[in-house]
Design a protein around this nucleic acid. Structure first.
Lengths: 190, 190
DNA sequence: TCGACAAGTCAACGAGTGATGACTTAGCGT
DNA sequence: ACGCTAAGTCATCACTCGTTGACTTGTCGA
């Protein structure tokens, strides 16, 4: 019994279309009509289901499981973050959606939450040596940079590079941030 | 003799306002009226001076000297790119403007040009070992990631970190990408 | 002093926006 | 078979957008 009018399925199609549109054109560049059109549905349904364009954005960029990165050693943390941000599942591109929706609406706050969630302190806690918080953020910066080069800058070689080929170099970078930089360490605690 | 009606000065004020708006709200989120308002001028002047909103965007994000990064050794290349992208002069934020104007107009092409300009091949040429092109792009990814954390993600520690404090860790990362990753190198040329 | 020219303003256009509420229709239980 | 309810549509509002062409006003040379 295939249902032609299925609220949940329609909701899911709207969310999927919204994720693509927001990732591609940002919040301001995406019209509710366009999203509804992609989902094969009238625009008024968006307001029925999500209340407003803002509600749609929040629902489309919600992180379904923000705890998933907690308590990991830094190497594994970086690897998982890389697979989430740089190799997202089929056209979702959460980083693109959040970066391109800046200033606007809940965008800024969601971006900060997605990128600097509570796990950041966790990771900083596992780092020995100086500036653990800064180095934890630099790990995120590295992943974010790769994600941006892959998902937002058109025509990069990195965009066509598979995860395995990247992993080797990523491990080297992560190691450089996790280990104390050798040589010119200004003395910290005795 | 202070001039009240000064074309060049007005043009410059429009460009400055446009750079800020585009960086903050992206192309679609920026209205010509808002830019003109910031500059204290009527919106029609934008079309007189730049032809269209697109023309304004192109003028505002134009790279005044794209040759400035050519022929540098990778370490110095990364350092200069970092000072351009992550520590831009007073509220210009070219990376933000380009990233937030995606899909749209000349944005994509300009982004690619700014990030993967001709200097990328130069840098790749100076890298020994495997995958020089990929590693050159990874250098850019690193800089881009730091720029995004500083300029687009609100409330980061990195956003409050001065260039000198960052330089030490950046050098470590750049070294990791420039030197061959040790250990698990799959054999390339004998 | 005054007029010409450039710098800047004004009012308006058509198209598209988010949003609303009344409407239609498909599908299920009875 | 039929009506009730929820799923989906339609027409429309008030507003903002980019863009245009006619208009006004400041400034400088003659």
């Amino acid at each position: 019994m295939v249902v032609r009018r299925d609220k949940e399925a329609t909701r899911a199609r709207l969310l999927d279309a919204a994720r693509r549109r927001f990732a591609e054109h940002g919040y301001a560049g995406t019209s509710v009509r366009a999203v509804a059109g992609d989902a094969g549905v009238d625009a008024a349904l968006v307001f029925r289901y999500f209340g407003s364009k803002d509600g749609l954005f929040v629902a489309a960029t919600a992180d379904e499981d923000p705890e998933r990165l907690r308590g990991l050693p830094p190497e594994e943390f970086a690897e998982r973050l890389l697979s989430m941000f740089a190799y997202p599942p089929e056209g979702a591109r959460p980083v693109a959606a959040l970066l391109r929706s800046g200033g606007r609406a809940a965008g800024e706050a969601r971006l900060q939450a997605a990128v600097c969630g509570p796990y950041l302190d966790d990771v900083a806690g596992t780092l020995d040596g100086e500036d653990p918080e800064l180095r934890a953020e630099l790990l995120v910066a590295w992943v974010l940079g790769v994600a941006v080069m892959r998902g937002l800058v058109p025509g990069t070689l990195l965009g066509r590079t598979d995860p395995d080929a990247l992993a080797r170099y990523s491990r080297a970078v992560v190691r450089a941030l996790v280990d104390e930089p050798e040589g010119d360490a200004r003395r910290g605690s005795p």
